[in-house]
Design a protein around this nucleic acid. Structure first.
Lengths: 345, 345
DNA sequence: TTTGAATATGCAATCGATTGTTGAAATTTA
DNA sequence: TAAATTTCAACAATCGATTGCATATTCAAA
């Protein structure tokens, strides 16, 4: 590929015998150019197939109109939807998106952050990896005067803009509904407790038990069961107990819930009559399994849009002091067959 | 957010009483700096929390180490996986990804391309939208000396690097296997024929019929049935025929196949005994439906990696002329329950 | 006709990093 | 000791666009 010479404002200027300044002004639709000259410049630019060099422009203007996004995995439904939502909103404002995935690795997360700082992005949007050990790298973002917005998996101690789900409330409601269906021994598959979202979901579970005067049974709470495989493993253990649970709340993810369902089916536990199952995230597949899986919808696309709009909104009152703001979106329990012990009304 | 002053090479230079040139050379690990000075500069850079301004660097060097990606939808499994694959490979080379989604709209596709040209990306990777009317915008990419790689949905007339699936062959094999299972009247749901991939899949279908001496029955070929809803609609029509098909090949997508399955179930057609169903793409959900859906795996993640590596490879022999190269990946038929009319061996 | 304002354009510095050229100092070789 | 060579660092131009300041031109008002 030969690196072709691209037309610049100098080329246009030379051709028309004006200065680059005027060309620049014309292209930026400034008032300080004669209407006739402006039209002529625009026409010539078109003819020469001129494309502004954003690099140069950004360098001069000290901003990049670019937002960096760091997520654990691009190809996970929830994150893909959030990104789609962000893209949808930012595109309309003429902003670009640079996407990085951390692959749940702390090192890669740090490197991604550094790249984005180097790129002079105007804002960094992040959902931290499980593996996140500390938040020096996030502090660094702030130190560089770059707006930082955390979503979903947030570091609570760090005071930044945040868009989160009300995990505790959602979890509380889900467990409540499970109890209403008549389940008595509800197991919990919990996620890595270093992440706030998983702690909150656990709290919601505990609160629901307490409200219904149900005891907390330690052997029914399984740590770190947040993938399909770990969910399956946990289920094998749970269903092998002397007193197995009659419902399993996979608070970590729908993938985990899928593991539960597969093992339950293999072990000949009838779902939902003998075993209720509830997941988290409303992945597309949850309505396609048989039985379909009860889950919690997080409004991921909307979440993405909210993140983007939060940024634009904060941009506007840039003179005032930044108040760490938290937007909490209330997720919705999607009741499906896997927890329908009672007949439907 | 106050736009903080960031440390530049000038700050470092001033502090150490050397010139910016030396700082630059030290940071780039050039040999033309004294080893002691180099260490000192590196140490000071660290202390001052220096981060290279990639904009300036890129402007000067005339390259951006950035690859632009345009896909119809980010949050569609196939594309998300391809992107993840691209990201995986480019990240290792220190490249960044700018992602745009066309939302299947020609206008947005053109705009996205223009943005990427402005951004001086080194390469543009695209899978065109259904709505793509012409390819002036793609030609424009080439005119600007930017490497262009098309994948999956490619414009055949345009001679660029391409990474595609062998759609015809895959389609041929799938239909063959369906025939081997004993199905006699196989319907085809075809996609918009302006896209080559859909034409190829149709050809594969026709070839398989011909090879098995089976007639082409016009009323069994349904145009433009490429979403879940259109797939469902087509199925209602097909199953209402005097002589309904005993198998439906949704060559367009798994979503379409899902529509088929739902309608078939609703209309009390037994799958696979009365009706065989085959989709395309191996979306995650296809193994979770009941029955699970036979489909074709396109190795999406691998496809992404291939695209990225193709670029890096072409970069190396940049002095030679660019030969339009096509890499064809052979997809794999995933035989599942939905077409298992015969007992398994 | 003169003054003043409004309008248009040019000049030159700037954003931050890179790099070819040049020259001084240090080192090696004769 | 002188000459030749190597090593290191400074200087200055450059990438392309933007913008504050200064100047020139035009036009209307006095």
């Amino acid at each position: 590929m030969k690196p072709k010479k691209r037309t610049t404002i100098y080329d246009i200027a030379e051709k028309l015998n004006v200065t680059p300044s005027s060309v620049s002004r014309a292209l930026n639709n400034s008032n300080y150019v004669n209407e006739t000259t402006k039209k002529l410049i625009l026409k010539t630019a078109e003819e020469l197939n001129y494309k502004r060099n954003t690099l140069a422009s950004n360098l001069r203007k000290g901003q990049s109109k670019t937002i960096g996004v760091v997520v654990p995995r691009i190809n996970q439904n929830f994150f893909a939807n959030v990104i789609a939502g962000i893209e949808d909103a930012t595109y309309k404002q003429g902003y670009n998106l640079i996407i990085c995935q951390s692959n749940e690795s702390y090192e890669k997360e740090v490197q991604s952050i550094n790249t984005l700082i180097n790129q002079h992005v105007d804002c960094i949007v992040i959902s931290v990896s499980v593996d996140s050990k500390n938040y020096k790298h996030l502090q660094n973002v702030l130190d560089h005067g770059i707006q930082l917005i955390q979503f979903d998996r947030v570091v609570e101690e760090l005071e930044t803009l945040k868009v989160i789900n009300d995990n505790e409330q959602a979890s509380f409601e889900a467990v409540n509904q499970i109890i209403e269906q008549g389940y008595k021994r509800i197991a919990l598959l919990e996620g890595p407790q270093n992440l706030a979202i998983f702690r909150q979901r656990k709290t919601g579970y505990l609160n629901a038990l307490a409200k219904n005067n149900m005891p907390v049974i330690d052997e029914l709470i399984i740590e770190n069961a947040w993938t399909k495989e770990l969910g399956a493993k946990a289920t094998r253990k749970l269903l092998g107990l002397k007193q197995p649970p009659d419902a399993i709340f996979a608070s970590t993810s729908d993938f985990s819930a899928l593991g539960v369902l597969e093992v339950a089916t293999a072990m000949n536990f009838k779902v939902p009559s003998q075993l209720g199952i509830c997941g988290y995230s409303n992945e597309d597949f949850t309505e396609l399994t048989s039985p379909s899986i009860t889950t919690i919808d997080q409004f991921s696309f909307y979440m993405g849009k909210t993140v983007a709009n939060l940024y634009f909104q904060e941009m506007e009152n840039n003179d005032t002091i930044v108040v760490p703001k938290i937007i909490s979106i209330k997720p919705k329990v999607i009741m499906r067959t896997s927890t329908q012990k009672l007949k439907k009304d």
